[in-house]
């Protein structure tokens, strides 16, 4: 039922694919964290533009990531923008999670006491300096754990990239399966890999959380 020699045979192949998964996760999260911050900041700076951002966020959150990946990969080329599978996939994941992250940042901004804004006005700081030096440093640390949760969620969505044939972990496991007709070992190994990585990163986030609270 379970063949150990086969397991060790495919382990190096899967390990190489795991690097691709981690790369996609890192790039996707960088996009999510920065675009999310931009969206939340727009909402903060221009309340009138907030409605547009709200609708945009609601649209992105209400449609499946898989469809968004297909959209970027299949529909954008019709408009003349051709992205390779990896770029399209990472961009879709990044933008999808940017919508979630912007809500997290918003909670962070709303958490900063009003007096901080008023004090900045009293000190005659420009809006930009207020935002950069006073509000952001206070808004970010409390939302780090929430962002971390989305990092793990994003990491677990990367197997979706296999649907547009990015050679990440899941796609590699599927390829091994279709070549050898053995799905048990590769798919189980992928599951174990995700479980271990999620548990480890959940532990790191918990440590980070308690460290931030202690400060």
């Amino acid at each position: 039922m379970w063949d150990w020699t086969f397991t060790f045979e495919i382990l190096p192949v899967l390990a190489r694919a795991a690097i691709m998964t981690v790369e996609a996760t890192a790039l996707g999260f960088i996009i999510a964290a920065t675009v999310g911050l931009v969206l939340a900041s727009i909402r903060l700076a221009f309340p009138s533009a907030g409605v547009v951002v709200t609708i945009l966020v609601e649209l992105i959150r209400s449609t499946p990531l898989l469809i968004q990946i297909f959209f970027l990969y299949f529909v954008l080329p019709k408009a003349g923008i051709v992205l390779d599978a990896f770029t399209a996939g990472v961009a879709a994941i990044g933008i999808h999670y940017a919508a979630y992250c912007s809500e997290v940042y918003r909670a962070g901004f709303e958490n900063v006491p009003r007096g901080q804004w008023e004090a900045s006005i009293a000190l005659n700081l420009s809006p930009w300096n207020t935002f950069k030096d006073i509000i952001l440093p206070q808004a970010l640390p409390p939302v780090v754990p929430a962002l971390g949760n989305y990092l793990i969620a994003l990491f677990k969505e990367t197997p979706l990239l296999s649907a547009i044939a990015v050679l990440e972990l899941m796609q590699t496991a599927k390829n091994i399966g279709s070549e050898t007709f053995r799905y048990t070992e590769p798919v189980t190994l992928v599951g174990v890999f995700f479980l271990v990585m999620s548990l480890v990163s959940a532990g790191i986030i918990r440590m980070l959380e308690s460290w931030l609270q202690r400060r």
Binding site: K156, P159, L160, M170, Y183, G191, S198
Partner: peptide, 13 residues
């Protein structure tokens, strides 16, 4: 702790 997609594949394959 594991992807929904991996769970789906595990149950199916």
């Amino acid at each position: 702790g594991t992807s929904a997609l991996v769970q789906l594949f595990w149950l199916y394959f």
